[in-house]
Write a protein that binds this DNA or RNA. Structure first.
Lengths: 215, 215
DNA sequence: GATCGGTTTAACCGAATAGTTAAACAAACA
DNA sequence: TGTTTGTTTAACTATTCGGTTAAACCGATC
């Protein structure tokens, strides 16, 4: 590392600290529920530094969104392209989304809130990312329907089912563990599921949209 | 209407105006994103009146939550109790939830946000309501599994699938209509679904959790 | 029609908010 | 060592926030 690089790499380090703090804060409390001072406190950095390094609150949010959603779109498209059959493509599609959710603990909260507010704070880059993911799903479902493998269910309903199931389960699961009225036996049943959530959701979705004549 | 009643009924009318305004504001912008002044403006009432009639912001939110979630729990239990077979019970369960969502346009946004924040603003009354609904679902799934009708899927995953699908679709559907890149033919396919969303979700969920040997 | 009590209101308060500024700091370089 | 340049900081501003107050309002009762 040259001397010139050292300064800029320290700057990158503070940017990283800020983005991490912002990601956690936005996930916990939403856009309006998060104050810039709170982000600064979490990042252990002066508030003016946030404005110097990144910009205003919207810019911080856009950066977080981009970081969280940015890479996913291509990953999904790539994973689906590796498969040949619609069933395999759909399974890969679901598996990749679950993998992304498990890699980013803050993704469900942020995405769920974004859906609730109908994308009010979404930068267009992110909207395009989501759109490209949807196009992949639409293609898979059309292929499957043409081959008689899938029944004719509106793609947006399928999309709602996949995303809704995954994101909700990710958020509901920890709440469940804190509920005293739920018998321990029930709680235990979800534990081993952790690793195989993908398999379970895959199976459910494929059965849900599978065509009758195939069974 | 007696003379004495007129005054109190006018008071009730302002409370209604306030609750309606609060419900819409909280649904649109969330708890933190809604200002008391905004609610007052929407209700066309002075801010001090809100505090006189209802209480502080939390009390207003609790009232909205109670109004939105209050009646649903018993409706679901009643509807499921009318059926004898697990499949019929589950279908009634789903149908009732969809009916409630369609009757309350603000329900999805509020409930989705509440899930994102892990019930941070939820009054205990509402938490109990949700718990009782979950108990009904757990009972149905246990019966079905014992009778070999349903396969053994964790109840919280089934719950996530049902609620996630319904709530997400309700929010995603209007977004979809505003997207220019989506072919009109695709948009049209969801239209006739409006009335039969219940049938479709019922069918998907039952197929998703149906046991193998039954097919 | 005087007055009593429930209701609404304008005006106000302190705290928190998003965003700015000018100065201090520290690393590179001459 | 002094200067320059990129970075961080404390202190500040204007606005908005949730919540309060005291006075005005108005229908019911006498």
């Amino acid at each position: 590392m040259t001397k010139r690089e050292r300064r800029s790499s320290q700057s990158e380090q503070t940017v990283e600290k800020i983005v991490k703090a912002a990601r956690q804060a936005f996930a916990e409390n939403g856009y309006s529920g998060t104050s810039v001072d709170d982000i600064a406190r979490r990042a252990d950095v002066n508030k003016a530094t946030l404005y110097y390094q990144i910009g205003d609150k919207q810019a911080m949010y856009a950066l977080v969104i981009h970081e969280v959603l940015g890479g996913i779109a291509r990953k999904i498209a790539d994973a689906a392209a590796l498969e040949t059959h619609p069933e395999g493509k759909l399974a890969a599609y679901i598996r990749t989304i679950i993998q992304a959710v498990e890699d980013n603990p803050e993704l469900p909260s942020i995405m769920i809130r974004e859906i609730a507010s109908e994308g009010a704070h979404l930068p267009e880059v992110a909207a395009r990312d989501i759109a490209s993911v949807l196009k992949v799903l639409i293609g898979i479902l059309e292929d499957g329907a043409n081959q008689g493998i899938f029944s004719d269910i509106p793609p947006f309903l399928v999309h709602s089912m996949i995303m809704g199931t995954i994101l909700f389960y990710q958020k509901v699961s920890p709440i469940k563990d804190r509920q005293a009225w739920i018998p321990a036996s029930l709680k235990r049943r979800d534990k081993p599921l952790k690793g195989s959530l993908a398999d379970m959701v895959q199976g459910m979705v494929l059965k849900a949209i599978g065509s009758e004549q195939r069974l």
